[in-house]
Amino acid sequence: MKIIVLLKRVPDTEAKILINSEGSGINEEGVKFIINTYDEYAIEEGLKLKENVGGDSTVTVVCMGPEESTEIIRTALAMGADNAIHICDAALDNPTPDMTATLLAKAIKNNGFDIIFCGKQGIDYDMAQTQAFLAEKLDIPQVNIISEFAISDDNKKAFLVRSIEGADEKVEADLPVIISCNKGLNEPRYASLPGIMKAKRKEIKKLTLTDLDSSGVPAEKDSTIIKWLSLPKSGECKIIEGEDFGEKVVELARLLREEAKVL
């Protein structure tokens, strides 16, 4: 079985995100980049499926992103993925989900696939669109935000659970299918030391736009980010101390009049 896992390089959840001075993006200085948190569940589910199905199953990680993405790709390989495809081209400037999905679809088609796992959304732009576009481009069913996964004995049907507001939804889908994973699906494994050793020898296939033949990729963006704006700073809270309630009210009135100037 050919198992594909999609991977995205995103800023660390703990990083403080600051807008750059031009308002054209985030200030990346000192920001650590990690595997998109939801993609970790996708990797784990892909690896579990491989262990479960056995035979000559392979887990191929597919990542589109800058050169530096190699670091997270290696980590996925150290967790146990067999090989990787890295779509990397300097000409790619903040591609839309449509563009991304077109290129991913080309690479995945060339590689062959039976099932695709990805995170339910990137924790950077939070668009959650790439998987939907990709399902369309590959003409396969998609099931999103799943919290349980199982596969039929003949490996032809996926049994899925989606946790929706107040209930669980049970879904069956025919393979090939693309599945986006939610927190709670599994407990992602750590990259073990022997895994790290082995990852060194695993293949990362690099693909540029030329390698992929960019026909079919939308020439223009269907939506463009015009400007990034910082959130307004929340005001500081002032607590009026004291024992006497009356005095505190007087003080409150004075502050509202003299400092806040709202009275």
């Binding site: 670091e71 290696r74 073990s192 030391l193």
Partner: peptide
């Protein structure tokens, strides 16, 4: 190097 960073990350995550 890349491996040392990965090992450090596994240790830190654990």
């Amino acid at each position: 190097n890349e491996e040392e960073k990965m090992l450090q990350k596994t240790a830190a995550d654990f």
